[in-house]
Design a protein around this nucleic acid. Sequence first.
DNA 1: GTATAACCGGGACAAATGTCCTTTTGCTTG
DNA 2: CAAGCAAAAGGACATTTGTCCCGGTTATAC
Lengths: 192, 192
Amino acid sequence: MIRTNITLSNYMNKLWEAGNVGVRREAFGPKQEIIAQDRRYTKVHVITEGIVKCFISDENGKEFIQEFLGVGMEFGELEAFNNLTTICSVTSITNLETLSLSHNLYNKLLDEDRVFNKLIMKSLADKIRYKAPRHSYQHAYPIEDNIIRLKETFPEFTEVISKKDIANYIGVTPRSLNRALKELKEKSDRSK
Amino acid sequence: MIRTNITLSNYMNKLWEAGNVGVRREAFGPKQEIIAQDRRYTKVHVITEGIVKCFISDENGKEFIQEFLGVGMEFGELEAFNNLTTICSVTSITNLETLSLSHNLYNKLLDEDRVFNKLIMKSLADKIRYKAPRHSYQHAYPIEDNIIRLKETFPEFTEVISKKDIANYIGVTPRSLNRALKELKEKSDRSK
DNA sequence: GTATAACCGGGACAAATGTCCTTTTGCTTG
DNA sequence: CAAGCAAAAGGACATTTGTCCCGGTTATAC
């Protein structure tokens, strides 16, 4: 549920420690908007500490959470390839630290640093791999099954992430999520 | 709805014409399974002619279509990065021609051919960019709106792609799709 | 030509989910 | 400690979507 990529954060830290000009450490408090949807930016971030949510919101203000990103995940990178506007907003959930670099430097590293190039290529491929089954599963199964599944992969999810965000992640309303949670609880109570 | 990437197919054709050893042209009839889910393969394909559907199926045989891929789109590439099993099946809808290359050659080209590397990087980034808003939209809006949207981006969709596939693409049952189509028709009839 | 099978389209009902709104809970702040 | 606020819970009803099944059409074989 919360994705990570330790290999990449390790590598970024190494670049930073090597004093690579242009790599900057940034820090944010919780609930800060680091990237807004439909805007242009010139930086890529790699998370070194904390969790963000990455979401699309529509005209009615509804949010649909794409992913929760943890240590080692990058964001803002898609726009480094094609100079388009962002499709997601990115907001910190916890305290956050990132290493950021400009599109220019990012592309330069991709060109000149094979290890970096490979890491980013894998990171992109993983994002694709991850998304496909998730959306498929969400469509095909009722809410309850999705919650059970979440609990399995990430038991502490309610402690870190708000109910509203979880609902937006599964793609249902908070009301429906509650209903499902209640029914799950009743079922487990009965079986005791 | 049917994704393409002409720059990539052009480049692949150039590689092929240059007699690049290991790039092979392959041809398939309609409804052939080129890749099956949860298997291992050692080839990457780039489409040079035709359309495929790329889908996940669950234990109950339900299909969820991830994308329709047209000329210039690649498939089987994710597994070249991490040697895992496939997450999607890929089946031809029309007659199909691809240029295929082994994982080895694919990775070699990524390493040695900067133009190729950049093209693939962009292609991966585009796949991510494309998926996010699609699933978001499908969740947030009723079936009817999704159909209207399909019609706008791809008016001839019913002629090429079967009803069942369209339903699986939107993530609803054929029954629901029919209902929505009927209501749309009635609405347009009334306004005449 | 007729029988048989496969394939829609759609009716009727059931189930899941959303909407709206009220109540409860827990936490912050003065 | 009380007041105020934001998040969470849930009741009541509406809407959407799924499930099951039937009847009609088209294709196919003999």
